[in-house]
Design a protein around this nucleic acid. Structure first.
Lengths: 197, 197, 197, 197
DNA sequence: GATGAATGAGGTTTCATTCAT
DNA sequence: CATGAATGAAACCTCATTCAT
């Protein structure tokens, strides 16, 4: 399809996408309230009414970004759960892979990550869902005898999410560390503990 | 005491304190932007100009609350560091006590906690300071041979703060868990790990 | 007739007519300002620019509807005046027939009626013309000795229009009464009065 | 009370009253949609936010005016009903007095009248209430044998309101006729009819 | 004949903040 | 110490209308 081969409505779709991208950037870096529709459109080379051609309101565009984040995040965690680890994998490896996957996604979508974890009104809800998912996995592995019986997997799951969140913003998104090594750090710490025996 | 029996200035100080308390509540529960000066003053039984008698601006009153949080938090962690643990204490106990102290404070000041950890623009900075403090302690204990050499104490400190933050909001501030047991959970998890040997 | 069998322009005329009809409906029921061009075109299955293919502006389409109403209304009253009543007719009958004719038209064009009587900026002007017409008739009949000399036919004509307008909206357009009986009610009331002799 | 004797809040009350008065004028002459808050406040020598100090919205200030109209109108018709006509009064006089009272009020409040009868979304409702009130009176007088049995008092009441409305705008509010003579015209017409016996 | 895309202009409303008393 | 009254600034949003295809 040549440069004149634009599909019907292609240019509108482009504008919409552009607005979404810029909005994500603004929301991520300025927060909801400091993000002005006027800024978004002017960065897109458009005027204000154009914004309302594609989104009902400022709130709604945020929602769209949040849903995008939520969906991708849970799709991915779901998929990674189904992907059967090779038999040989140690539990360490299996968990590390899961966490790596999450980190990879967060790294690929830094703006959505800031939005979904911080800016969104539903941020807490999203994290809760993540906790629930992780907790499920942990419990099944606990039943399999991998983890101490006395561990409260709710607390552990919350902790993991707390750690992931913190390291995401302090080490991952600023390029200080990569997904793999971060995941490894976490797994090693949590599995074996800090104490010298 | 007659209507003129109030000590001069007392009532002003009272109003100021009241405004601060209400502002903390509003900021904590509505966030900065959804907190309206008009709401604060009306809850205080005052009028808008009265607000500006005590605080230069909405931003400034937030600052004051943030500084209050920061100061208390670091005073406390400082003091707790100086308080010499009994010789006999295990490392487990020593760390647990430190974390308990932090949790106790956060629990006593739930509004300031939300403000210092979430609402404040300097939230990240505050957490970084906390990380630094914890990291110092950890390194010294690592040098004393308590912890594995290979552990990156920066990551560990970040993780601890991440865990503390998360558990504060999901377990502590809503009364689901108390400081001691939370601290214990954390210490046990981090010191000994999850793995069955 | 195949899909290309339409006579050129036919479809354009159809669109124009459709837009007019829908606009009449919207103006009649929502008023001028609550009627949105976007609504009109979308109800017509068209897009906004299409609207401007047929009408210069929202104001102009209203004008066209108003003129349609005005023309029809005065055509009809004119014609009904020329149609010679049978010699035998009582004055009662003659007037009743005139009013019936008006009501019939208003009933057939409820939307135009609402527009011409309420929505149009020229509503007052239109009613004034109607008053003038009626007044002329009345005066000639007064000269013929049918009506009391002392009656101010200006007031009477205004009254008749007032009554017609009110009964149109409260009894005619909602189907509560038909043109004939309404006309009769009016004529009886005005000719013979309410009083028991 | 001297010129410095202003009661607390007096000046605010003045602004509010002024805004109401100007708004009434604007609504009456420009209609709701062509009335701009900016015009109202600038005519009052104020700025836009001042408007919202006294009224929640443009819609609400219209409502307040409408209610003012409605209340006054019905208060007055109520009172005039209770005021016992002298025994000696003819039915003609009694009715004329009632209509005169209404006209006097409409004349005193030309802006509210335009608002209540034309501009208000509830205009129709208000007129309906007026019709109901008049109808009641008429029926009781019909039972007393003053009026023909065959008259449908619903139609008559609607007619009276139609006439009042029309004559108000075409004869009363522009000073062409006074309340008394208008009322007389109406009563004479409706009671005795137009026909020469 | 019709559309996708966009805009100019303007309107209502909100809120932190200040002035004069 | 406090208030009544007001404002500057700006945000979001709507709508009729047009341009280029």
């Amino acid at each position: 399809m040549g440069q004149r081969g634009r599909k019907k409505g292609a240019i509108g779709e482009e504008s919409r996408t552009l607005l979404l991208k810029i909005a994500a950037d603004e929301f991520a870096h300025q927060g909801y309230y400091e993000t002005k529709v006027s800024t978004i459109v002017s960065r897109a080379g458009l005027t204000q009414p154009a914004f309302y051609l594609y989104f009902q309101s400022k709130e709604v565009i945020l929602q769209e970004l949040v849903e995008r984040f939520r969906t991708k995040l849970f799709d991915l965690t779901h998929k990674s759960r189904l992907a059967p680890g090779t038999e040989i994998e140690t539990i360490h490896q299996r968990i590390a892979v899961g966490i790596t996957t999450v980190f990879r996604f967060l790294q690929e979508e830094p703006n959505l990550t800031r939005i979904g974890f911080i800016v969104a009104p539903e941020a807490e809800e999203i994290k809760k869902q993540l906790v629930a998912l992780i907790k499920e996995n942990l419990i099944s592995e606990q039943k399999d005898g991998f983890f101490h019986d006395h561990l409260d997997m709710d607390i552990v799951a919350e902790s993991i999410v707390g750690v992931i969140e913190r390291l995401t913003f302090t080490k991952l998104l600023n390029g200080l560390k990569d997904p793999e090594s971060l995941a490894n750090d976490i797994v090693r710490l949590l599995l074996y503990g800090m104490l010298v025996d």
